[in-house]
Design a protein around this nucleic acid. Sequence first.
DNA 1: GATCTCATTATTGGATACAATATACATTAT
DNA 2: ATAATGTATATTGTATCCAATAATGAGATC
Lengths: 218, 218
Amino acid sequence: MKIKAYDISKTASATTLIFDAIRQAIIKGDLAQGEPLRQEDIARAFNVSRIPVREALLKLEQHGLITSQRYKGAVVAGLSLDEASEIFEFRALLEPEVIRRAVPQMSPQVLETAESCCDAFGRADDPMQWGDLNRRFHTTLYASSGLGFHMDVLDKAMDRIDPYLRAQLLLSDGMQRANREHRMIVEACRAGQADRAADLTRQHILGAQESLSRYWQE
Amino acid sequence: MKIKAYDISKTASATTLIFDAIRQAIIKGDLAQGEPLRQEDIARAFNVSRIPVREALLKLEQHGLITSQRYKGAVVAGLSLDEASEIFEFRALLEPEVIRRAVPQMSPQVLETAESCCDAFGRADDPMQWGDLNRRFHTTLYASSGLGFHMDVLDKAMDRIDPYLRAQLLLSDGMQRANREHRMIVEACRAGQADRAADLTRQHILGAQESLSRYWQE
DNA sequence: GATCTCATTATTGGATACAATATACATTAT
DNA sequence: ATAATGTATATTGTATCCAATAATGAGATC
């Protein structure tokens, strides 16, 4: 079983815990696309019945992380390069607006956290951490925007594309460039330059997309 | 094969049917915000057990149409003016891009369908039909874009805001103006003017938002 | 009268059992 | 041998039952 199965606690519903565990496994690439997810197997792994498992799978399907067919079960969703590109473009459209709104609201504490992500990002040598820190960097800045709905759909978009983003970070200068661009974005935020932060964010995303697209065909 | 095999409604699961029914009820305003949704009641209404009902409620929660608390149940989600405005702005950001991509791909048939929506819109006197036709008008045009992810999140945004959009159509010149603007959008599409269609769409949405905001305050 | 237990009830979360469907394999007919 | 058909098995969908929790109300205490 490739899913990390915690023993269920009472604080959160079983459904939520199972959802989180499988989501992590997919995002980190532990579960490859197309991998089937059998209700019974998952239920055994978590020491629960199939009911909460089914509800977790339903949530995963809504997030686009799995696809399921009636009476046939669920598999980890695949993503073609075209679909990945579409989601990159979606992010490139949305995130500049989000950060533009966030900049005027950013507390020093938020900027501090973002910079600590940059520092840790530069020091980390575990490729898996890069993905986590990259994601935390962006969500930290965006949180100040106060935009609930935008963030909801953005989270979904990031979930969907996360494995590809991690792959992009592993490319020759992927991590180096991401680090450079992150620091420029923070700088613009600290200076209160919302438009510049928005523009840098847009280029940051489109750059990652292009980088991934180039290296895709080999 | 001479026998035409209609698919009995076995194709859809009970969960799906319940989800659709409740979604419609919320979108059309039959269920007011804050209205509690008891699993047992719904199960009786559909002659099923609570299991498919719970799964339908989960999907509705993912769509943002209801909110639920552990051991306390679900209620129809509310939406403040601020939240509604955010979603209008979200749509204003996304839909111009979607239609811009759709215009070059539109078949004559699609344009025909869109115009038939306009005609029916003008003739209809039932306010409830306006909302349906308005929605169908937009989704018809957008379908040509081939953007799967964009449409997914857009559907969610439209679901969320639909009751407010219907309210806006009921305002003094809401329906008249919508009709006018719809025809201008179709015209641009037919002429292959993607940028113009995008711009008109943006103004169409922001106009509806402003109209609703003004009315809201008095 | 107000408020604080504490039992009662209503409602949701989850487990078990059964029904519906798909898949894999064996069997038969051509 | 190949395609069609029947059977067994695996897997999902749903119903029924029990457990955990929240809402309700009656009586006790001040």
